[in-house]
Design a protein around this nucleic acid. Structure first.
Lengths: 346, 346
DNA sequence: ATGAAAGCGCTAACAC
DNA sequence: GTGTTAGCGCTTTCAT
């Protein structure tokens, strides 16, 4: 991008005014009273010359780069990561900012180096986004800088973060099944002990217990969070003497396995078993047949909310910004075709 | 990120030398002969003070921002887009550069505005990446700037681009089936007339015809490129009197539908029908049962290759860069479990 | 109502 | 071997 740029000087010369004036009219600076004629002349020159201010030079003076850094563990590669990026990007755009995206790949060393890069480029703030809901420490150099955690939380209360509300999600899943009339529920959880599995279980168990169901009618198992894991667990669960008629799966992929298990057992969905997934994963929940009823993760919203909070802190420049906020964002229920009332003889 | 930065001046003062010396040491400038002692002192001061040069200031002087712009139609959101970004990012990193990612959402107006943003920020070059293989015009303001098209081609020969080699992919798909011994082939194509559907068909037809099969034994249909579309087409195809034993689907999602059709028809995969997909879409090709044999799209590689070419052009600064190159990148075959020899009585 | 000039942090001629 | 200095393109006091 070498070609000689048009600078503010060129415009000034062309309009026969000083650079100050050009700057003042183009940024319509509050205190300055320019005659309409001058303004007109300047704008006309700028337009005719195709002048576009150098953001670099501006940043240098104003000490605001108009960029926010987005550092993710792997975020760019994952289908969900993209949504968070998009949310952040849209908000950044509204604040005349751009996103500088870097990836750390979970390694602290790389993360530090990337953070370094971002700082050297004077980003105005940092969005630290995680691929999956987890706890995250923030690099020591970043405390005191504007930063917000997206899809991750911190035990350090001074940092702002947003995560999905897994508990309510689990509760909603149970509720969908209960509302359809199911009296024997099953939950196939992820065997990894992570916030998502813990939260979804908590919500599910809470709601199920609160429904007056006998403990024997609430089955919880866990398996590898994959299609195969879901298949095996569902196979076992649905093969029991009095199998659940309403099945909640930790995620859509496990639900995919459950579909296969049901088919092999001669069980139709939703006539014989109802299934609820989680994640609303593109190309799977829609592609399954029947289309999967599921709970969506609010990725776009988390990205957008995080960016919004970040700009708040940035724009409270120098001053003491707003107090840190922690948000558990509601996971929307997506009703599709995999839930129906249980068969009468169930 | 307001906090007073350590500048080169601070280091110079601390080390008792001039800023030039600091600059020379830290960038180990070729022509300059510094005593080891000076070097040591400077480095020590820099380290102790935690000095990190301002990339902004550097860019201003050197007229290189160390950033490349990545503009995508929707790229950040899609699972494949992430891979391209990652490829580009890795290469950028190797060139001490960062990616400025913007999204145009297919609207020319927005694209122009975003490009504008990028230019104003003095990106060193632009990667124009498409969500799916297509033809793309490049914004008029960008001719003459370093730019390369990723996953898109241009009829304008002066621009460098890279796309997947769909034809060879289609040929490979046919080859997999043929090699397994199938003598009745079917291809469920995407009904949209796009480079991917055209190319895959061309390759498939070519190879199939070259195998000596009777035209009657080569069935080609097309449908909506979704799970449902695949289902319907497969249902029709496999329901024929002498159905194909080897089925190639335009993409993995259609293959997903074909699995369902086969199941309903009482056909086992791969014993009764072999299936080959395309795209190697995460979470679907692996999650299907049996795991889907497919042709992968080289997204990461396209991103990386494109970035590499871009840096070539950028680094051939001012001089006449290398001639534009056009590449059709081979799509790797992923052998999994959905292909087997046809049953003897087939 | 407009302009001169300082300076943001750095690099690169050019002196010494 | 090392230092002085002039910008890169812009914003912002402070004069006038």
């Amino acid at each position: 991008m070498a070609r000689r740029r048009v600078t503010i000087r060129d415009v000034a010369a062309d309009a026969g005014v000083s650079v100050t004036t050009v700057s003042n009219v183009l940024n319509d600076v509050p205190g300055s009273r320019l005659t309409p004629q001058t303004q007109g002349r300047v704008r006309e020159s700028a337009a005719r010359l195709g002048y576009a201010p150098s953001v670099l030079a501006q940043s240098m003076r104003t000490r605001r780069s108009g960029m926010i850094g987005l550092i993710g563990d792997q975020v760019a590669t994952t289908p969900f990561g993209g949504k968070m990026i998009l949310g952040a990007q849209d908000v950044a755009k509204a604040h005349a900012s751009l996103l500088l995206v870097v990836t750390s790949g979970f390694q602290r060393e790389i993360e530090d180096a990337e953070v370094d890069q971002l700082m050297r480029r004077q980003v105005d703030g940092i969005l630290h986004v995680s691929m999956f809901h987890r706890e995250a420490g923030i690099p020591k150099r970043l405390v005191a800088e504007p930063i917000v955690l997206v899809n991750a939380f911190s035990t350090d209360d001074s940092v702002t973060w947003v995560v999905p509300d897994e508990v309510t999600g689990g509760r909603d899943a149970a509720q969908i099944l209960l509302a359809a009339g199911h009296r024997r529920l099953g939950f196939i959880n992820n065997e990894d002990d992570i916030p998502a599995s813990r939260g979804r279980l908590e919500g599910f168990a809470q709601r199920a217990a609160g429904s007056g169901l006998a403990a024997a009618d609430i089955a919880v198992t866990s398996a590898d969070a994959s299609s195969d894991g879901g298949y095996r667990a569902a196979r076992a669960l649905l093969g029991r003497p009095k199998p659940p008629t309403g099945l909640f799966c930790f995620n859509d992929r496990m639900a995919m396995g459950a579909y296969r298990a049901a088919a092999e057992l001669g069980l139709r969905i939703p006539q014989d078993v109802s299934v609820v997934g989680f994640d609303d994963q593109e190309y799977v929940s829609e592609a399954l047949h029947p289309r999967l009823t599921t709970i969506a993760l609010p990725h776009y919203e988390m990205g957008a909310w995080g960016a919004e909070r970040l700009f708040e802190r940035i724009e409270a420049l120098e001053g003491t910004g707003p107090a840190p906020v922690h948000l558990r964002l509601r996971c929307p229920v997506i009703h599709r075709d995999s839930v129906a009332p249980p068969a009468d003889d169930a």
